[in-house]
Amino acid sequence: MSHNFMQAVKERRSIYGLSKEQVVSADRIQEIVDDAVKYAPSAFNSQSARVVVLLGGQSDKLWDITRETLRKIVPAEQFASTEDRINNFSAGYGTILFFEDQMVVETLQNQFTSYADNFPIWSNQSSGMLQFIVWTALEQEGLGASLQHYNPIIDDEVRATWELPTSWKLIAQMPFGKPTAQPGGKDINPLSDRVKIFQ
């Protein structure tokens, strides 16, 4: 599937209706993630991004963890809608977990003390660019995805379940799969209020 860059940007949307039907191979998913991790920009070329790709039952396990964690804190009378949302995510083919390695961030803070306050901000900016690259690339392959943030309440169990380093800070979760529903309309605020050009 071939698109030019801006067309792909326009077509990338949050897709919540997903199925487990395989659209592309697991190898292709890994290729997309590998390329995104290699080429996403990062401050000082820090390369602080860490990614975990969960497919099939491994992805289901993540959403089981999330569901049971939320069951403990969401009032019982409100839990049905929460569970429906989680079930939508677990209905997909996989989930990509985005982390930032805090050991890398802290090393840079110690090396370049005058920028110390900025490195966590730059780390998050880099992660956002990586997420966007992966999300847009998945869309080009015919996959739907959305971006979720159940961190930090699931962080400890995620690290324990997949034996991840304690320095990896979970930033976002991206469930993906074959789209089973189209995205809703997208309201766009006037660009005259958002973009200024001076010549």
Rank of each mutant, 00 (worst) to 15 (best):
P190V: 01
S59K: 09
P183G: 02
L164S: 09
R12Y: 03
L55K: 12
A91T: 05
P183I: 03
K61M: 11
W122Q: 02
W135M: 09
E77L: 02
L54N: 11
I29M: 11
W162N: 13
Q78G: 00
F5G: 02
A49I: 03
T180M: 06
S90A: 11
S127D: 14
Y150E: 06
F119C: 04
S59I: 10
L108T: 02
K72W: 01
R13H: 13
T161V: 14
Q131E: 13
E83S: 11
S81W: 00
I86V: 15
Q58M: 09
T180C: 04
I73P: 00
W122R: 04
I153S: 08
I32G: 03
D27K: 14
E163Q: 15
T136D: 06
A145H: 06
L130E: 04
Y115F: 15
Q109S: 11
V24N: 05
L70N: 06
D35I: 04
L54D: 11
D117T: 10
I133P: 01
D187Y: 10
D101K: 04
S127R: 12
F99Y: 09
A36D: 07
G94H: 02
G56A: 07
I154E: 12
V9R: 00
N4S: 11
K186T: 14
V52H: 11
D187S: 08
E141V: 09
F112W: 04
Q47K: 14
Q102P: 00
Q148H: 15
T113H: 10
I32E: 02
F89L: 01
V33G: 05
D34R: 15
L164Q: 09
S59R: 12
W63G: 02
F176K: 06
P190L: 01
T113I: 13
F5V: 14
L130D: 05
E157H: 08
Q47R: 14
Y39W: 14
V158S: 09
S114I: 06
A172W: 08
F132G: 14
F119I: 06
Y16V: 12
S48Y: 01
R28A: 10
K196G: 02
G92I: 04
Q58W: 05
N151G: 14
T107V: 01
T113N: 09
I153Y: 06
L147V: 15
P152I: 12
F176M: 05
F176Y: 03
Q140T: 15
P175Q: 03
T69F: 08
S114A: 08
R85Q: 07
S114Q: 11
I29F: 04
Q173W: 12
G92F: 07
Q7V: 14
S14N: 11
R159I: 08
I153M: 13
L138H: 05
S42N: 05
R12V: 04
S192V: 10
V158Y: 07
D60M: 06
F99M: 02
L62R: 08
F44I: 05
F176Q: 07
T82P: 03
E77F: 06
G142L: 07
S19V: 10
V37L: 13
L97C: 11
